[in-house]
Amino acid sequence: MVRGITMVLVLIAVQFLLVISLGITGLSDRMLEAVIGEELRALRPSLAETIRDPDELEYALRVRREELQTSYGLDRPWYHRLPEMVSRVFTLDLGEAHTLRSFTGSNRVADIVLERLPNTMLLLTTSLIFTAGIGIAVGVRLASKVGSLSDRIVSYFSAVSYAMPAWWVGILFILLFSFRFPIFPSGGMYGTPPPPAGLFRFLDLLHHAFLPIITLVLASAGPYIYVVRTMTLDVAQADHVTVARAKGLTEKVVSRRHILRVAAPPIVTGLVLGLAGSLGGSILVETVFNWQGMGRLYYEAVVGTPDEMVIVALTFMFTLIYVIARMILEVLYVILDPRVRYQ
C-alpha cells in the first residue's frame, strides 16, 4: 500500500532532518563528546587504582579519549556519521540529559522520554476518542437540522473554537476552576502526596486529568463538529439518498446505511486532518497543566538548561506517534471505503 510506504518515508525523512540539523549545527559533535566524557569519567576511578602516577593517569585517559573519538567517528566530518546517527535516533540511544531526570532518577534520555510516553498517550487517546465521539454525534445531528437555530449556534461555536488556542483555554480553565472556584487541581497528574495505589489513586488521576482532557476536547471537537456536519450534509444531498427514500426504506435505514455509512470515510479523513493539530495541542496543554507527559518535557527541555538530545528524542517520538496514528486511520479508511481498495 502506497500510503504505508509514504509513512515510513516520512519517518525516515524526519530522522534525516533531525540528524542533519544536529550535524550542521555541531550539536552532534558535542553530544558525542559528552558521551565520551561520561565514559572517561566512569573510567577514571578504575584506572586510578592501577596507575598511581597522576601524569601517567592523564596520559592514559587522553589515549583512551582519542581511541573513543576514532571509534565514534569524531575524527571525520559529521556527514560520515549519518547512518549511525539515524539509527541512534531510532533506538533513542542518545546518551544522557544535562539536567533533566526521569522519575526514577536515571538521566538517560531514553528513560526520561519513554517513561512519560504512557502519560501522553493517556491524554491523547482519551481526548481523541471524545473528540471523535462528540464530533460525530453532534455533527450528524446538526446535518439533519440544517439552518435551525442550534445548527447556527454550533456553527459559530465551531468557528470560534477553531480560533481559540487550546492552551489558552486551558489557562482560562485553571483561572476559573482552580483559582476562582477551587474544584479542580491546577496541575500535575496526582496530588502531593499521591494517594495509595488502587482506586483512590485512579480517581485522583481522573480528577487531575479532567481539565486537560476537557480543554483538548473543546478545542478539537468544535471544528470537527463542523467538518462532520458538512461532510454529512454533502452526502445527504447525494442522488442515491433520494433513490433510497424513493425505494420506500425507512428514514432510519436511509440515514444509517445511505448517509452515515457513506459519510464515514470523509469523516475519518476529517479526523486525520485534525490529528496534527491535536498533537500540537496536547504538547501545549500538557505544558499548561504540568501534566508529566512528553509534551511537558519539551517545555522543560527548552526553558530550563537546553537539553538538545531530549528534544531530538521527543521530536522523533512524536513523529512516530503521528505516523502510527495516521496509519491506523488510513487502514480504517480503506475498510470503510471500497472504492480505494485494490488500486
Binding site: 509513512m7 524526519v14 490529528l275 496534527a276 500540537g280 501545549l284 513523529t319 503521528y322
Partner: peptide
C-alpha cells in the same frame, strides 16, 4: 504534509 507541525517546529 505528513509531518506533525509543532514537534518539528519546536525542534527547528
Amino acid at each position: 504534509s505528513n509531518i506533525p507541525l509543532l514537534p518539528l517546529l519546536i525542534f527547528m
